[in-house]
Design a protein around this nucleic acid. Structure first.
Length: 196
DNA sequence: CCATTAACGCGAG
DNA sequence: CTCGCGTTAATGG
């Protein structure tokens, strides 16, 4: 769900084109903007006490960004880093609130509810100790935002390493589990590409 | 850089 | 004891 970009521009938003790996904001920064991603891919991550990367989520177009963080005076709990060349629409916080107050038909409630719902779904699987449940949770999450809902129709273009960082399990376990899942006809593999 | 495999340790059940 | 996951190292893409 994205807000009409022209509306955003009319309230002072600007477009950023980012080609390379770059940090949008860092853990500890204060939120001053609302971001929307019409194109590209961004990861929100955090490093645990051992330096292991934890990917909180990977943002793709139509998944609006850290909007929930606008409403609190807290610092970002995560880093935002560009994974694929991105088009980012950035609008200052106060301009964004002016936009909302003058366009009462736009409500962030829907966004927030949807994100919260997704987070709950992810939590269900992340709490599981079983690696296959965790991986399936991540796969479902991404598939739900794709145009491919048929079994095996969704090409998972995430590396095993990213799946590992998202689910908190090791890459070797991801590999072992994915293979097992293929035997159980949960996923299909072509070379190394995962179809779910 | 990432994926795969094997060998080993170790804790949980 | 057995099983599964993490770790390490080696190999190859």
């Amino acid at each position: 769900m994205l807000i009409n970009s022209n509306l955003l521009f009319s309230f002072g938003a600007e477009t950023l084109l980012i080609a390379s790996v770059e940090v949008i904001f860092s853990e500890g920064d204060h939120p001053h903007h609302y971001y929307q991603i019409p194109r590209g891919r961004i990861k929100l991550n955090h490093f645990d006490e051992n330096g292991k990367e934890i990917i909180q989520s990977i943002l793709i177009p139509c998944l609006s960004d850290c909007e929930l963080l606008l409403f609190i005076n807290e610092k970002y709990p995560v880093n935002a880093k560009v994974l694929l060349p991105c088009e980012i629409i950035k609008i200052k916080k106060d301009n964004f609130f002016r936009l909302l107050s003058k366009n009462t038909d736009i409500s962030l409630d829907k966004f927030l509810s949807e994100r919260l719902f997704q987070k709950y779904m992810m939590m269900q699987s992340d709490i599981s100790l079983q690696p296959d449940i965790r991986i399936i949770g991540a796969l479902k999450y991404f598939k739900s935002y794709s145009n491919f809902q048929e079994k095996y129709s969704f090409e998972v273009n995430l590396t095993r390493k990213k799946l590992a960082s998202m689910t908190g399990i090791r890459i070797e376990t991801v590999i072992r589990t994915i293979k097992q899942m293929e035997k159980e006809n949960i996923v299909k593999l072509e070379n190394s590409t995962i179809f779910y």
